[in-house]
């Protein structure tokens, strides 16, 4: 992994094959709940490789591991790609989820995200994992259930109770 990161930072083109080899399973895992079509998945992966190549200098070891950083890049690229297909809009920077918000909207979004982060931190470890699987990784209930060894009904029930709890924590009824 170190060699791949160093190669990317040195802009060594040979490293992209290694990147694809070692990380395509992870990328596909993150992309597949967002993009059902396999061809779209392949094209999205190509876009991700480009993004990684372009944005590698923004990877900071102290903020998280390469896997975590790549997860964020992959997830946001896949969401943007899905929106592109749906709305036929041109490329949107992966840090911005939608048509470019106004400065006021950006502030609101940041505050909302901060509030939500505080609320998420009060959840138990298992609840956090469930939450991120559903709302970050955008995994369907079926996938969450099979990977956690739960029935679909059990997952739905837990997610329902989680949402009610989050609403309460965020000041809702």
């Amino acid at each position: 992994m170190k060699e791949i990161i160093e190669g990317l930072k040195k802009k060594d083109k040979n490293v992209t094959d290694e990147l694809l080899k070692y990380y395509s399973p992870l990328m596909k895992y993150i992309i597949s709940p967002i993009l059902a079509n396999e061809q779209d998945q392949e094209e999205c992966i190509s876009e991700i490789i480009i993004k990684v190549w372009q944005k590698i200098d923004s990877f900071d070891n102290e903020r998280g591991t390469f896997n975590a950083w790549l997860t964020a890049v992959t997830r946001n690229t896949a969401i943007n790609y899905a929106k592109k297909i749906k709305y036929h809009v041109s490329d949107i920077p992966e840090s911005m989820p939608s048509p470019e918000p106004t400065p006021e909207q950006v502030v609101i979004q940041k505050e909302t995200a901060l509030e939500l982060k505080k609320a998420i931190n009060t959840l138990s470890e298992q609840e956090k994992i469930l939450f991120y699987r559903k709302y970050y990784y955008l995994q369907p209930t079926k996938q969450i259930a099979s990977e956690l060894g739960l029935s679909e009904r059990a997952v739905e029930g837990r997610l329902y109770r989680l949402k009610i709890r989050l609403r309460k924590l965020l000041g809702g009824d």
């Binding site: 997860t71 939500l116 970050y136």
Partner: peptide
């Protein structure tokens, strides 16, 4: 969904 665009926590990854 839209409020979680940052890098996820390491334990989650």
């Amino acid at each position: 969904k839209n409020s979680l665009n940052d890098i996820p926590p390491q334990n989650i990854v």
